[in-house]
Amino acid sequence: MRKITFLTTLLLISFLCQLTAQKLYFPKAGEWQEKQASEYQLDLSEAVEFAKSNEYSGSRDLRQAILKGFQHEPYHKLLGPTKRRGGPAGMILKDGYLIAKWGDTKRVDMTFSVTKSFLSTTALVARDKNLITGFDEPVVDYIWDDTFEGEHNSRITWTHLLQQNSDWSGQLWGSFDWADRPPQDQGIDEWRSRELHEPGTYFKYNDVRVNVLAYSLLNVFRMPLPKVLKQNIMNPINASQSWRWFGYENSWTTIDGLKMQSVSGGGHSGGGMFINTEDMARFGLLFMNNGEWNDKELISEELITEAMQASAPNPNYGYMWWLNSKGDRHMENIDTSIFYAAGFGGNFIIVDQKNNMVIVTRWLEPSKLEDFLNLIYRNI
């Protein structure tokens, strides 16, 4: 009798899981079905108005905003393309359906460090394809040149690069690792001669090291990462053809006799991902559903779970996704299970797997993110 009860319970759980999965909607190319937020007992009007009225305070001329934002960095200059941005825009999805939107959701804008989450996704693709057999392996075993040579750099693994705790030391595309967001109470001589941290023990948000990851993955795939992303992720999720992923004017290398551009992981020096709000929402929906899009697995669920594990030196950071775990970046009234991509100027993709929600907001004053989310979640 107990065995029958146990089997019945398992069947019921399986049925409920299938029922939940059937509720999810995956939009076809160029369309998006809408539902009223009230169907889910939600009132999002105040949250939408808040996003529209709390625009990022920096200039809409992003060339000017970038140069001002990073003016304290030695040798900083623009090496990749920029584009004047639009106004606040966003989308909120529930079960895949569009339940709120504002602004021009089809406008292509820079998305800055949200690009990092797209970059880490190409690493997950490489792991799924067994081009990388383990993220705990030293990157030096995969790269032919001297990028990872030396006592320190040779100990750096893929995990260290993905979690931004490698403390890689060197120069790439004319940029020095120590010149990226350096301490303001020190000078150039101190930055150059600093003591290196053991890989995996010290978190440092650093675009040069992120670009080292992009360059390493380019060497692994032996094809440009935008093509990898397009074939394996963006085409299968029915994204538009308007997104672009740029590197720098000097970030070119030759692989198999072909000249290829190594892309950047953000817009710190220009470049990075240029994308519309709707494509960002599709990308978020893929992660909300653990890498599966309309019954097709694009990324293994195990890898997505791994990517959202907190790193040892930073409880709020996984594989280039921010986590709402307890830590310096914890948002007190928001569930600790959510994770999100974040970029300069207030670009965010928030993924909430518990509530089957994806929230994309663009050009929101970054300090207002928690207030904005509180307005959404107060009725949930």
Rank of each mutant, 00 (worst) to 15 (best):
L172V: 12
L172S: 15
L172C: 15
L172D: 14
L172F: 13
W173R: 00
W173F: 15
W173Y: 12
W173M: 08
W173L: 08
W173A: 04
G174L: 10
G174C: 10
G174V: 12
G174H: 08
G174S: 13
G174I: 11
S175Q: 07
F176T: 00
F176W: 01
F176L: 08
F176V: 02
D177I: 02
D177M: 02
D177S: 07
W178D: 00
W178A: 02
W178R: 00
A179K: 02
A179N: 03
A179R: 01
D180E: 12
D180S: 05
D180H: 04
D180A: 07
D180V: 01
D180T: 03
D180Y: 02
R181F: 07
R181T: 10
R181C: 07
P182G: 15
P182D: 12
P182R: 14
P182T: 13
P183Y: 13
P183C: 12
P183D: 10
P183K: 15
Q184E: 15
Q184Y: 13
D185A: 11
D185P: 02
D185E: 14
D185M: 11
D185N: 15
D185H: 13
Q186V: 10
Q186P: 02
Q186L: 15
G187H: 08
G187F: 03
G187I: 02
G187V: 00
I188D: 13
I188H: 10
D189G: 06
D189I: 07
D189C: 06
D189H: 08
D189S: 12
E190S: 11
E190L: 06
E190Y: 14
E190C: 05
E190Q: 14
E190K: 11
W191T: 04
W191A: 04
W191G: 01
R192H: 10
R192G: 01
R192F: 07
R192Q: 13
R192E: 13
S193M: 12
S193T: 09
S193V: 06
S193R: 13
S193Q: 14
R194H: 13
E195V: 14
E195F: 14
E195M: 14
E195I: 13
L196E: 01
L196F: 09
L196S: 02
L196T: 03
L196G: 04
L196M: 09
L196Q: 04
H197C: 01
H197D: 04
H197M: 02
H197S: 06
E198G: 01
E198T: 09
E198F: 06
E198C: 03
E198V: 09
E198K: 06
P199K: 01
P199T: 03
P199E: 00
G200H: 01
T201K: 07
T201W: 11
T201L: 10
T201F: 13
Y202K: 07
Y202I: 04
Y202F: 12
Y202A: 06
F203G: 00
F203T: 03
F203A: 07
F203N: 02
F203K: 06
F203Q: 03
F203P: 00
K204H: 10
Y205P: 01
Y205R: 11
Y205F: 08
Y205S: 08
Y205Q: 09
N206V: 05
N206G: 04
D207A: 09
D207K: 05
D207Q: 12
D207V: 08
D207C: 11
D207S: 14
